[in-house]
Nucleic acid binder design. Structure first.
Lengths: 142, 142
DNA sequence: GCAATGTGGTAAAGGTGCTTGACGATCCAC
DNA sequence: GTGGATCGTCAAGCACCTTTACCACATTGC
């Protein structure tokens, strides 16, 4: 009998997350993208081509803007991102990817794709797709 | 088109975890089990009736023994648990639930069950069960 | 046109849940 | 018995997030 089955759902989700995340970090490291933490990589993926406001990034990541600030601060220090004033709103700044950030994001995407493809192979396409659908349903507002 | 579907798997898993965890915390609070953090609740569930060593608890939770130390320290301070010397090994101590800890664990179990039942209803029994199976497969060593 | 209220970015402090490193005490195999 | 593993512990630190508090600028309502 597999004892894993008896665990609370939240635990299983957490461990699954950690497992996938760990694989992703390893895949990133393999590509030489050292010095890019998971939260930084996640943030890079949220910036769109024309640049995105801090508040919008925070909303997309579902964290506070202050938390996103810290991530963007680090990314800016690392030269992956820069903040430019928003011409349409003097309060706002737009977070924009630098050439370096673009490169990193591309690598991050590849690393993530590799892990997902690997997972899909392991689980089987059908189960993998069903998993994603179920998670979407789980996250749907009640 | 639901943009949720495009997210990396790790993000979806993390958000699902947070969502379920949040519900669980709320359910715990409803039952008056204030002052019991998720990690503490998780640890309580890992202690078996006859008591369990710190190292074993850490292994079960898949964290370092030092991390488990902190959780157990807090639980002990809160009077939910106590450490008694292991008669079979002078180095070891056994973590044992107090009456309070037993009560808390029972409440925690109920809270978790309530959330899982609710989730099962929302997703449908079939999808819910498939989700658990898939997560088990995901966690299986490669 | 201006006060009230809202929003974007920032600063500071703190908390949770983990990590790594080091260490004494005890156990066990040889 | 001696050397190496194991148990619990202390200490420091890090990743990632929060709350509280501000100021600058925008927008709304009158």
């Amino acid at each position: 009998m597999d004892p894993t089955m008896d665990q609370p759902l939240s635990r299983m989700l957490l461990e699954s997350y950690r497992s996938v995340e760990e694989e992703t970090v390893a895949a990133l490291a393999d590509r030489g993208e050292l010095g890019l933490s998971p939260s930084q990589a996640a943030a890079l993926l949220l910036v769109d081509r024309s640049g995105t406001r801090l508040t919008e990034l925070a909303a997309r990541a579902q964290i506070t803007k202050q938390a996103m600030m810290q991530v963007v601060d680090d990314l800016e220090t690392a030269g992956s991102v820069r903040r430019v004033p928003d011409p349409t709103d003097a309060r706002a700044k737009v977070v924009r990817l630098t050439a370096r950030g673009l490169r990193q994001r591309a690598e991050a995407r590849k690393a993530i794709s590799a892990v997902e493809a690997r997972t899909r192979r392991r689980l089987g396409a059908r189960r993998y797709d069903t998993l994603r659908e179920t998670l979407v349903a789980l996250l749907q507002p009640d």
